[in-house]
């Protein structure tokens, strides 16, 4: 069973959206649990999950499908999106703003009341079964002008915002995931919380829950705590020498 600790109303929102066949947009900073949440919900709703990690070369054909040659003839091979539609699965496009513009165009008829997937090369138009659910995610912290979600896309989705959990909940998550004691988890969360105060003031993002779990995991495996923090938090967050020094000093202040 996938572990996910609900923070607010996100599970109820997702379930209700899914029951009404409404597509879902998850937004939040990196490493705050968006992907884990989708896996959790897929399990809870008992639906297959097909995940696509989007990147800048991902085209519409990559997700819908294409003809390929096999034994001297051509056969059609479904892409992950088409597969999800046919199976009635949850299709999760992670960091969708990274994908090429034609991907978003394919999503439009899927994410409004039509719920169809036109496959021009096959001359087919798939109608989504009730269980099909489109879920996309993005991190609004991106500052690049080329990585913004267009209004016409975002207004087709039910949006669920994710933030880092409150300290006591985050400590619970870190302890559970890394198998560490509550004190270590609390110390790491305190450290992570402090780094987030520097967001937009030297760091683009503070330490994510995921990084805190990594630090705890390395520590539980026997590495010294400061070494683990250096590797997972300090060096992962920045290359700026002054900020690196500040983070090292912070670790010293928090941990003694």
């Amino acid at each position: 069973m996938v572990y996910y600790r609900p923070i607010g109303q996100e599970t109820a929102l997702f379930e209700t959206a899914a029951s009404h066949k409404l597509p879902v947009l998850l937004k939040g900073p990196t490493g705050c649990g968006k992907t884990r949440f989708v896996r959790f919900m897929a399990q809870r709703l008992n639906r297959p999950l097909i995940t696509v990690a989007c990147q800048e070369d991902l085209s519409a054909a990559d997700i819908t499908g294409r003809f390929v040659l096999e034994k001297g003839s051509t056969i059609w091979r479904d892409g992950p999106l088409t597969r999800a539609v046919r199976q009635g699965a949850i299709c999760y496009l992670d960091e969708v703003v990274e994908a090429r513009a034609d991907v978003l165009t394919v999503l439009h008829p899927l994410s409004d009341d039509r719920r169809i997937l036109p496959l021009e090369r096959l001359g087919e138009e798939l109608t989504c079964p009730d269980d099909f659910l489109l879920v996309i995610s993005y991190n609004p912290g991106y500052q690049s002008v080329v990585r913004e979600l267009k209004e016409s896309t975002r207004q087709r989705f039910v949006s669920i915002s994710f933030h880092y959990p409150p300290p006591e909940v985050e400590a619970e998550i870190v302890a559970r995931e890394a198998g560490c004691d509550a004190d270590l988890a609390k110390t790491l969360v305190e450290l992570g919380h402090a780094t987030r105060r520097l967001r937009s003031h030297g760091l683009r993002e503070g330490a994510s829950t995921r990084l805190l779990i990594y630090a705890a995991t390395l520590t539980v495996s026997g590495l010294p705590l400061k070494t683990a923090c250096q590797a997972t938090i300090v060096d992962s967050l920045t290359d700026d020498s002054d900020i690196l020094q500040a983070l090292r000093d912070l670790i010293h202040s928090v941990m003694g």
Partner: peptide, 15 residues
């Protein structure tokens, strides 16, 4: 100064 200001911001929550 720069690293100390960053450290102080993280410790105190104020800039």
């Amino acid at each position: 100064r720069r690293s100390m200001a960053a450290w102080l911001a993280m410790v105190t929550g104020r800039r």
